[in-house]
Design a protein around this nucleic acid. Sequence first.
DNA 1: CGGACTGTTGAAATATATCAATATTTGTGG
DNA 2: CCACAAATATTGATATATTTCAACAGTCCG
Lengths: 232, 232
Amino acid sequence: MTRRDITDLQKLGGPVVSRQRGEVISREGQPAEGFHLLLDGWVSSSVRLRNGKRLIQKLHLPGDMLGTPSLTLPSAADTLTALTEGKTSFVSEVSLRKLFASNPKLSALFFMAAQLERITLMDALASAGRSSALENMAHLLLDLHGRLGALGAVSNDSFYLPITQEMIGDILGITAVHVNRVLREMSRGGLVKFEGRTMCLLNLQKLRARSPLPIRVPRSKLPWLPGAKAVA
Amino acid sequence: MTRRDITDLQKLGGPVVSRQRGEVISREGQPAEGFHLLLDGWVSSSVRLRNGKRLIQKLHLPGDMLGTPSLTLPSAADTLTALTEGKTSFVSEVSLRKLFASNPKLSALFFMAAQLERITLMDALASAGRSSALENMAHLLLDLHGRLGALGAVSNDSFYLPITQEMIGDILGITAVHVNRVLREMSRGGLVKFEGRTMCLLNLQKLRARSPLPIRVPRSKLPWLPGAKAVA
DNA sequence: CGGACTGTTGAAATATATCAATATTTGTGG
DNA sequence: CCACAAATATTGATATATTTCAACAGTCCG
């Protein structure tokens, strides 16, 4: 990105808002009218099913855009909840228009970011359907390991995991009880170690072998992107 | 969309290519370098897991863009297979650049289309994890009913479904045997009727009651979109 | 026509859910 | 900083949805 791109991106968001743990940033069923940039902290995106059960579709980490899918709907599909203290800033639809109208390169990057999210969801869906709970757990842990690593939040393959086993269950679509059994089995097998909210991946190689799909690495360069000023 | 938008969109694709049933349009592991517009026919997007099992992530219908997520990766994540005879046209990365550089409105629409796909995937993921096979089947049938209806391919709530029960299993993440049991149970319960490849939804209301999530209806208007020529 | 898919049904095996009881940790107010 | 309540983790026993294996019927297509 050029300096101009970065400036444009920073100008996008409104004032920085502090979020407390447990705070609902946006609730399903309410109109969206914009999205949020996650500047700091963890946020979950969850949906409640007819039968009352909840499912977490995504754990958002700093740098993520929250709530963009709901821009396409009359009312938000998911609820955004802060899992830790954090900071967000709101991007209105008007700001988004200005971005698309003035910076084709960032527009294309936004498009590509959305495609990357699709990949993650596609992989999660493929994995969920046809793999055992342990395999899905391995995939989830490796995904977090990769994403947190990129943010510098992993040391010695261990990281802070500010979610309960029940939430992990809501991500993988299994019960909290079964999450516990699987984690303990992985622990006994020397795959991971966890104390409180700290998770340590003891054997990345074995974990990768158990993961139904590899963790995707995005293309580092997209040579076809329009130049920042290449406006017709 | 204005006339200019439509012209821009049509210019995007290369020559029309005819596809035979079973033909592989693009294979996972190979570089993408562009995507396909589906002009006619059904196409599946599938992934193969480490354990050899296949999972279908999406049934594509005419009007869909195929393979855009893989633009973000060094090599394609999914395999695109024609399920019926059909027609596609290829859009190169260069064409895509020109679009982003010259038409901010279509750029924004492309972004929004990707978000809509995310919604579908999020719902499928939420549904898959926490619902019974019958509930997921209801959701799938209603989704197809809605999408095919928009294309004028539904009459009397019945439509042509050019896929085997094994493929349905690969979509829902269950075995072909179980697909059969679930479909027959729905049939006995008066929810659906099927003969050969024709599926008829006999009781939409009951089906909706069994579906874990409603079928989403996109916003009809996005007033914030940049005008077609609103280039800074 | 015949062979290969595809659909259908039954019986047994298995992963995961559910229910229940207890231990441990975490957060909070005094 | 402590004590206590609430949330979370852990483990066992049992129930259940789905898979697996198997056998056969139907159907499509060359």
